[in-house]
Write a protein that binds this DNA or RNA. Structure first.
Lengths: 155, 155
DNA sequence: TATTGTTATACTCTATAACTATA
DNA sequence: TATAGTTATAGAGTATAACAATA
């Protein structure tokens, strides 16, 4: 019945819930945007064997800022044990290396290898394309506005 | 050493990673914003025994739009089995009821009970306060801009 | 034959506490 | 005594497939 009746299709489509007050809550919209975005992002990276979470870690390791594991955790909002797992993964793939911090031998600085830098460049390229698709309903100006607004609330 | 040297504190603070290119990617900022937002949201609801995911379901049940479980899944991007678990939880707490759709007895319409409506009102009030805190770095105009931009990309 | 809700199951993600080595 | 990283483990969240009732 539902499939044979086009009116029912329209009535039953999820768009009708746009009028629910939930759809006006910024937190809900943010959650939806990130769910769609990270799905698209993971899809863009699947051929490289990476997920967005792993990419974020690799990206900081490739930044030249020489993050320690603790700093990665603080910035990515992950606890130390999750960082260990992420760095283990990237290290086994030869994308990053652990270097002992000479100023504090308890700390380990995570640095991208040559291979890591290459994979990171390719991953960044693919992610920016995916980001463009996710934001295709926005003009360039709007994308810039969005970035600035998010920067003000993300940190 | 780190704690006794204020300079090291500043150098080592996570703010220094704001200059990493990762911090300019909208997807990353969106993920961070929602992580902070849903943490604050869950915190705001903890006294009501709800999480934001459960609130979303309750909110649609309270909207008067008479969603079926399938529609809830489509709109909230959750698969049917997750909806079952969510509705089970809310039903056991007496906040929603399952009603058989007279037009298709396979479907079940989820409707908030009186108690569900009350809890929903209180939860909404608390969430809006939490949202205000999350967005305290934005002016009212900026919050409205953000809502409109997110609406364009969230669906 | 297809769809809705359900159940079972496994997989990932996240959170916590205990351990080691360094400070 | 405190901190960085590690390990182990359990809990929450998510994804998949098979099933019964209905279309």
């Amino acid at each position: 019945m539902t499939t044979s009746n086009p009116t029912a299709e329209i009535i039953g489509g999820p768009e009708r819930f746009l009028e629910a007050e939930l759809s006006q809550q910024i937190q809900f919209l943010t959650a939806r945007a990130r769910a769609k975005g990270s799905a698209k992002g993971n899809e863009a990276l699947v051929d490289l064997g990476l997920k967005v979470r792993q990419y974020s870690t690799l990206s900081l390791a490739a930044s030249g800022l020489k993050p320690t594991q603790r700093e990665l955790g603080a910035f990515l909002d992950l606890d130390p044990s999750q960082i260990v797992a992420l760095v283990d993964f990237l290290e086994k793939r030869g994308l990053v290396a652990r270097e002992v911090d000479p100023r504090d031998r308890r700390s380990k600085i995570i640095i991208a290898t040559e291979k890591g830098l290459e994979i990171h460049d390719e991953a960044t390229k693919r992610l920016l394309i995916a980001e463009g698709e996710s934001l295709k309903n926005l003009t360039s100006d709007e994308q810039e506005q969005l970035r600035e607004l998010l920067l003000k609330i993300a940190f």
